[in-house]
């Protein structure tokens, strides 16, 4: 017998399936609901405030900036480049909403978007699909407009996040995702890369970005 058949036979011997799919589904649903009832209360009236507090907490360690709208992103990138003494060339996630911004008009720095993403890229600028307030996580679904590596190769990752796309809980993300096609990668990014592998001491920028800056717009 094939390994597959053997394994299924062994499972079925120990656990003969008697339930109908609909009753399994409602049992699964009941499990999720029971877990939700244990969660600490979360004030969903100010998701931006909640998200900001989470993501800038020491254990997450990102920085956050608030701007009025997406068209203010080039200005925010220019400020970030100046503050961190970075070169004005950066890799831009190939999302049309980012590409059509007036980068050349950003005051204070001659920004040059569109540098190819490389293994030593200093800065990449991206756009998140959404955010999760409970954990301070950014949501990315990979695709032609959101290659996975933009979030992992650069030393600095600067991400624009639409305040309207914030959701309170991980469970809300699950509901949101169930209405979308399943992407190759879902990346829930919570803060900058870090490691505690040497004596449990936290060090940033292990392999992914050492700095995560989030620009929240309305």
């Amino acid at each position: 017998m094939s390994a597959r058949n053997d394994i299924f036979a062994a499972i079925r011997k120990a656990r003969p399936e008697v339930a109908a799919p609909t009753s399994i589904a409602s049992e699964a649903q009941a499990c999720s609901q029971a877990m939700k009832r244990t969660l600490p209360p979360l004030d969903a009236s100010d998701l931006v405030g909640l998200f900001t507090a989470r993501v800038s907490a020491e254990k997450v360690g990102a920085t956050v900036e608030r701007v009025a709208r997406l068209t203010d992103l080039p200005g925010a990138v220019a400020r970030y480049v100046a503050t961190n003494a970075l070169a004005p060339d950066f890799a831009l996630q190939p999302d049309p909403r980012l590409q059509q911004l007036a980068w050349q008009d950003a005051p204070g720095a001659e920004l040059r978007p569109g540098a190819p993403l490389r293994r030593d890229t200093a800065l990449a600028v991206g756009l998140a699909l959404g955010g999760i307030a409970e954990t301070g996580s950014l949501i990315f679904h990979s695709g032609a407009e959101a290659p996975t590596l933009y979030g992992f190769l650069p030393l600095h990752h600067l991400v624009a996040l639409d305040a309207q796309t914030l959701m309170p809980l991980l469970e809300d993300y699950a509901v949101f995702a169930s209405g979308l096609p399943v992407p190759r990668n879902v990346n829930l990014v919570t803060g900058a890369s870090g490691t505690t592998d040497i004596e449990g001491v936290l060090a940033r920028g292990a392999h992914g970005p050492g700095n995560l800056h989030i620009v929240i717009f309305n």
Partner: peptide, 20 residues
């Protein structure tokens, strides 16, 4: 609350994907 990278991997590179 959540580790830095919670990632779901589903299948190989899709048409249009630049990486994977």
């Amino acid at each position: 609350d959540l580790t830095q990278y919670t990632t779901f991997h589903c299948g190989p590179k899709r048409p249009g994907d630049l990486d994977g």
